Computed example of a mutant assay.
Amino acid sequence: MPALPARIAAAFSLFVSLLHAGNAAAEPPSRAESALLHDLVKIVESKANAGWKIDRYEFETMMPDALESVCGAPEKVRLAALARQARTVESLGGPITEAYRKNGGKLSGLSDLLAATRVHALLTEALQRAPAECPFWITPSPAFRGVQTDAYRFTLNLETDGIFLLRRTEGTFLPGAGAGGRLLLGRGFSHQWSMLFGLEFGGWAIIEQSEEATNIPLEFIGAVPLIVRHVRETWQFDLELAPVAFLTQSDLRPSAGGRVGVSIGVSTLRIRRIMPWAGLHLSAELYPANDVRGTVTVIKGGGRLGFDWDF
């Protein structure tokens, strides 16, 4: 029973504080407020991607991640974020129950409102729990940068590829398959944009079919990729440019070339400062003719796994 008065007191304190924070929603969000809302939107979207069932139980499973973010933000930031999210719900036609009724009892076309409502409900519940449940080792900071983001920090990224390819040399296309790995240093400039730079090594086997036999020669590359990454909560989109060196098992003298690539991926929530992600990539590489070999063109695609470490 002692917990009930504490919850009532926390709810009353939250209501009173919101009376003073209402005007903050009309102003541009602070960096800490944007970080908190970004975290909560990603938490809700990750849960929705996995399949949303009953609100009460979904909110309970999200609460540890939500509190990790809420507890790191000062109370002023928390309340400003709640006021802003309430305004977002209103601007999208909320409350959701009324919009659902007006929509003929259908959720189609209400996905943005539904997501915003869930974020608002999650933040409201987390704010009520925070005074009693925030751990002592998480200290609120005005410089809160978020947990579920790379914004305004350096990260170390390990990525591995599975590759299927077509290699064209002297007018002949040959298929192949292989793998690669790369280590990248990343810098987040906002919650939407990051840049990554590092080293990559990989290789593949080409299938050469002749009347006498089938050969599977090995070929290798080394690259220095530069990646611009656009992030939308759980989704990320990469544009990549890279100088590349190409060599073969039979001739280790390299050919210099370049690569243009794109990829799309989905990330999860951070686990012990590591944020895993998985996606698909497609790239084209061109190696102009030199004294070693003729012009080589490689079209590659496949899957990619990555691990983003907030060190």
Rank of each mutant, 00 (worst) to 15 (best):
L199G: 10
R168Q: 14
L166A: 15
A179S: 15
R187F: 11
E200D: 10
I206W: 01
T160P: 01
S194T: 04
G162S: 15
G188Y: 00
E170D: 15
G188I: 02
G198K: 03
G181F: 14
H191F: 01
R167T: 07
D161I: 01
L199A: 12
L196M: 05
G178K: 03
F197W: 08
A179Y: 14
F197T: 02
S190A: 06
A177D: 08
G198M: 01
G186V: 00
F189P: 00
G203R: 05
I207G: 13
L165D: 00
P175K: 11
R167D: 04
N157T: 07
L174N: 13
E200N: 05
L174K: 11
E200P: 00
I206E: 11
L165W: 00
E208N: 11
G181K: 10
R187A: 12
G181Q: 13
F173R: 13
G162K: 02
I163W: 02
L199D: 01
W193C: 00
R167N: 09
S190W: 04
R182F: 02
R168W: 05
I207L: 13
F173S: 12
R167Q: 10
L174M: 13
M195R: 00
G186Q: 01
F201N: 09
G171L: 08
H191P: 02
R182T: 03
T172R: 15
S190P: 03
G162R: 05
D161K: 07
G198C: 05
T169L: 14
G202V: 06
F173V: 10
G188A: 08
F164V: 12
E159C: 00
A179M: 12
E170Y: 10
T172I: 13
G171C: 10
G181I: 15
E159F: 01
L174Y: 09
Q192W: 01
F201V: 13
A205E: 08
E170S: 14
A205T: 14
N157C: 06
D161V: 05
G181R: 11
E208A: 14
T172W: 09
N157H: 05
E200H: 06
F173C: 07
S190E: 06
